[in-house]
Design a protein around this nucleic acid. Structure first.
Lengths: 122, 122
DNA sequence: CTGATTCATCGCCATATGACGATGTAATCA
DNA sequence: TGATTACATCGTCATATGGCGATGAATCAG
């Protein structure tokens, strides 16, 4: 049973990693990551990093149908990644947690830089 | 609509956020995040955080079919998240980038903690 | 009031994905 | 040698997902 490599007194995975182990918690994390695992949604988040934007602006920027963008925004809103502030007949969309969201993406870029680098590049 | 980015004087989204803006780069990031957006794959990564494991061990741990686990591992291997070291007739699987991978998950947990908290909890 | 704009939602469709069992290959054991 | 174990791959199926257009509600312009 070579399973306590962390030394100490039988460390729990969650305590070592700081990431939950239960299925529910993992599903929650996976759900949030799933919301981030779409290029168009990432483009939306990036665009929102510059400030508030209307849906129609995001639609024009992405070159997608308005319904598609609206659905993506609903996804991001469900995950609490963006918030919408009604302004007249428009909706001003903005990042709910700019710094934390950026932290996840930055960490992912760093990881991507290492994982994809040694495989194909020098 | 203020969209002067690539000028060199005005700040580019990528420079502000540190996250690429091109579709290819976004797709790459999205692909990596997609690999992380599955509860079972997250469970695999967490389990591997404790050290090397055989496929059959992961299979027993997850309670999934061997083919399913193998496919998940293939996904993770394609993304460069895990590496496999042949050992006899078994394959020892381990994290390729434990710290960077953990950094992404930790940042996601932090984000989840904020996004899911204020919505339903106090 | 009438028309235009903005956004959310619904229905639909093509594709992607996760699950499984079955099969093939390589390595270990009797 | 033959049998068993460990793993990867293939084929299949049910479901999820992203895309679009159409529709409806709300707001603003005239």
């Amino acid at each position: 049973m070579a399973m306590n490599q962390q030394g100490g007194t039988a460390p729990d995975v969650a305590e070592v990693t700081g990431v939950p182990t239960e299925v529910d918690a993992l599903s929650a994390v996976a759900g949030l990551l799933h919301a981030l695992s779409d290029p168009n949604r990432l483009a939306i988040l990036e665009h929102l990093a510059l400030g508030e934007h209307r849906v129609v602006d995001l639609t024009a920027h992405l070159g997608l149908a308005q319904s598609t963008v609206s659905k993506h925004l609903a996804c991001l809103r469900d995950c609490g990644l963006v918030v919408s502030r009604p302004s007249g007949r428009a909706s001003m969309i903005s990042l709910a947690q700019p710094e934390l969201t950026h932290a996840v993406l930055a960490a992912t870029v760093r990881l991507l830089d290492v994982t994809s680098g040694p495989c194909g590049a020098a």
